[in-house]
Computed example of a mutant assay.
Amino acid sequence: MWTAARSAAAPDRRWSNPDEWCWTEKYAEGLASLSMTEEQFHAEYSVTVRVTPDRLRGF
């Protein structure tokens, strides 16, 4: 089985404040496995990108 998707991506400035990112607590263990703190993650990945699929096909 495979899936193909076509989508558009754009920066989402609504989520640009790291203080509003609630999911980093959920993924704290994953960040630790990458030897990365929450602060390092936010510094490295400072822009949220919103991906909106417009076509999806699976077989």
Rank of each mutant, 00 (worst) to 15 (best):
T48H: 14
S7M: 15
P53V: 10
P18E: 01
S33Y: 01
A28Q: 05
E25K: 00
R50N: 10
Y45T: 02
R55W: 07
M36K: 01
A28L: 07
S33N: 15
A32L: 12
E38N: 15
K26Y: 02
D54I: 03
A9I: 11
L56I: 13
P11T: 00
W15R: 02
P53I: 09
R6K: 07
K26S: 01
A28P: 04
T48W: 13
V49G: 01
D54M: 04
Q40P: 05
D54L: 09
V47Y: 05
R57P: 03
A4P: 00
T52I: 10
W2V: 04
F59R: 14
Y45I: 03
Y45L: 11
R14F: 03
A8R: 13
P53T: 10
Y45C: 14
W21K: 13
E29M: 01
H42D: 02
F41T: 02
A9N: 08
W23P: 00
G58N: 14
A9M: 11
R14G: 06
P18T: 00
Y27T: 02
S46H: 08
L56P: 05
V51T: 10
T48D: 12
V49T: 08
S7H: 12
S7Q: 14
W15F: 08
E44D: 11
A8D: 11
R14T: 06
R50V: 04
S46M: 06
R13H: 10
D12G: 07
R6A: 12
W23D: 05
A28S: 12
A10M: 13
Y45S: 13
R6M: 11
P53M: 08
W2F: 07
L34C: 10
Y27C: 01
A32Y: 06
P11H: 05
Y27K: 00
E44N: 13
N17K: 11
A5H: 05
S35K: 12
E25N: 06
A28I: 00
H42S: 00
S7K: 13
S7L: 14
T37N: 03
A43R: 12
T52W: 06
E25R: 01
R14I: 00
L34S: 12
E29Y: 06
E25Q: 02
W15L: 08
R6Y: 09
Y45V: 06
Y27Q: 02
E44S: 12
